[in-house]
Simulated assay, not measured.
Amino acid sequence: MHTYIALLRGINVSGHNMIKMELLRGFLKELDFANITTYINSGNILFQSQQTDTAKLEESIHLKIAEKFGFNIPVVIVTLEGLKIVVSNNPFSENEISDPTQPFVAFLSVNPSQDDIAAFSAIDFGKDKFHIIHKAIYLIYADGAAGKTKLTNALIENKLKVRATSRNWKTVHKLITLAEAYR
Rank of each mutant, 00 (worst) to 15 (best):
T38A: 08
A106Y: 05
K174L: 02
I176P: 08
I61S: 08
V75Q: 14
Y39Q: 15
V110I: 12
H2N: 11
A142D: 01
E81L: 14
H134D: 15
H134R: 08
T171F: 11
Q114P: 10
H173I: 07
I85A: 14
I45G: 11
I156T: 02
L31K: 14
K159M: 09
A122P: 04
K148E: 01
S113K: 05
I19K: 04
D53G: 08
S113Y: 03
L108V: 02
E58A: 05
K170H: 04
E180R: 00
N111R: 06
F107I: 08
A142P: 01
S93H: 12
V105S: 07
E67R: 11
E96I: 04
S14W: 02
I176G: 14
I117L: 03
N44T: 06
I19W: 09
K20R: 11
E81A: 14
T101P: 05
L28Q: 13
K161W: 01
E180W: 01
L24A: 14
E81I: 12
P100F: 03
T149P: 04
N44V: 08
V105G: 09
K29Y: 15
T3V: 09
F71M: 12
S166D: 03
Q51P: 06
F104L: 08
N158Y: 06
N41K: 13
D124K: 09
E94F: 13
E67M: 13
I133H: 06
A34P: 14
R9W: 01
Y4E: 00
R163Q: 13
L175T: 07
K84I: 12
T101N: 12
N89D: 09
P74Y: 13
I40N: 15
I45D: 10
I132S: 11
A164N: 05
Y141Q: 02
D53N: 04
T101W: 07
R167N: 12
K129H: 06
T152E: 01
A66E: 12
R167G: 13
F27L: 12
F104N: 09
F69R: 08
T79C: 14
